[in-house]
Computed example of a mutant assay.
Amino acid sequence: MTEKQDVLFGLNTFGDIATDNNGKLLTDAESIRLVVDEAVLADKLGIDVIGIGEHHREEYAISSPETVLAGIATRTEQITLATAVTVLSSDDPVRVYQRFATVDALSNGRAQVMLGRGSFTESFPLFGYDLQNYEELFDEKIEMFSKILEEKPLEWQGQFTQSLYKENIYPKTESGRLDTWVGVGGSPESIVRTAHYGFKLMLAIIGGDPIRFRSYIDLYKRVAEQLGKPIYPVGMHSHGLIADTDGEAIDLAWKHIKTSFDKIGRSRGWTPMTKQQFEHEVETGSYYVGSAETVAKKIASTIDRLGVARFDLVYGAGQQSADVRRKIIELYGQEVIPQVKEILSKGK
């Protein structure tokens, strides 16, 4: 069975350390409070989702996104409160459920957990896990989490997790089940796993022509149908920067996105991003950079080509100023989203 819905629009942040108007780095605490304020703004603008990533690195302030979401829950009314992602492999599925069930209670049912293996591995040694068990840890923990979501007494025999005998896990949710997604970067095995457990799929498209992910969406739907699982609408997230003009946005994005990706790349053996690579991503890849009109046209085209029902814009990469970040959110909510909706409505 296929679930249909209108297209949703979200914002994702990894908790990048921001700067003030003089270029001075904010403290971790100031950056966390900034994200809360940005989520409040997004809620007021009618943006559907705020997603917060989990990282354990110096350039990111947020290592406990559920705690930040709990703070946001008490200051917002409508926006869905998500992670982007929760690194389940290095966490305890029981505690993940409990934290999100608590956020769900505080927000009157707006919590959304997005599970993933994470693109960074710092959390594994930090929490005492062996990277040699990278695959096995996620396989076992996502299976355990799927059982916990049933909110029934749990019998579980674990190898990398605790063993439980008819244990109830609290608090229970009012709806009876947490809204659960899995973030996937492009592995067919991960797509199949997501469909197998009946979870929703979020594609992390960080570069290249997004149309190449069409085959993964088809695979997700095909496997879900074969297994008799719900066929949920698929979402995607990608980086972007919106400003008053294309030129201003491109200049800011080149400066900040390059800084972010080059720093990550140094630990992974990547060559530094060239201007040509950056411009190619802006023109034909999956960077959404430009004025509100330019970004709206590109988002609408991607949604139409891929058939996704949710688009999350990743904002704030690479030490952007608080004012630049606020401007992105305002333009996204006030101009980009309405324009995308109008373009898509004309195409029906």
Rank of each mutant, 00 (worst) to 15 (best):
M1H: 10
V7T: 12
F9Y: 15
N12M: 14
A18V: 11
D20L: 10
A29V: 11
E30W: 02
R33H: 09
E38Y: 11
A42L: 11
A42R: 07
K44P: 01
G51Q: 14
I52R: 03
E54Q: 15
E54R: 15
E54M: 13
E59H: 09
Y60L: 09
A61D: 04
A61S: 15
A61F: 04
I62H: 05
S64K: 06
P65V: 10
T67W: 09
A70V: 07
R75L: 15
T76N: 09
T76K: 11
A84H: 05
S89D: 10
S90Y: 04
S90F: 03
D91H: 12
D92E: 07
V94M: 05
Q98V: 09
R99C: 01
F100A: 06
F100R: 07
A101S: 13
T102E: 05
D104F: 12
A105S: 14
L106M: 15
N108Q: 12
G109M: 11
R110M: 05
R110V: 03
Q112L: 14
Q112H: 13
M114C: 15
M114T: 15
L115V: 06
G116R: 07
R117F: 11
R117T: 01
F127Y: 14
G128C: 06
G128V: 07
Y129G: 02
Y134D: 05
F138P: 01
D139A: 13
M144I: 04
F145N: 06
K147A: 06
L149H: 08
E150C: 10
E151M: 02
E155W: 02
E167G: 01
E167Y: 01
K172W: 15
E174Y: 04
D179L: 11
T180W: 06
V182R: 08
G183S: 14
V192F: 03
H196E: 03
H196L: 06
H196M: 05
L203P: 10
I205K: 07
G208F: 00
P210N: 10
R212N: 01
F213G: 14
F213R: 08
R214P: 00
S215M: 07
Y216N: 12
L219V: 11
R222I: 09
A224H: 06
G228V: 12
P230R: 12
I231E: 04
V234Y: 04
G235Q: 12
L241R: 01
D244S: 06
T245I: 03
T245W: 00
T245P: 13
D246E: 11
F261V: 13
K263H: 11
G265I: 04
R266A: 13
R268W: 13
R268T: 01
G269E: 13
W270I: 00
T274D: 04
K275R: 15
Q277G: 08
E281Y: 03
E283H: 09
T284S: 14
S286V: 07
Y287D: 01
Y288Q: 02
V289L: 10
V289P: 10
V289M: 04
G290Q: 08
K298P: 09
A300M: 04
A300W: 02
A300T: 05
I303Y: 06
D304H: 12
L313Y: 01
Y315P: 00
G316I: 06
G316W: 04
A317I: 07
A317R: 14
Q320E: 10
R325E: 00
R325P: 00
Q334N: 12
V336W: 04
V336A: 02
P338G: 09
E342W: 00
S345I: 02
G347M: 13
K348Y: 02
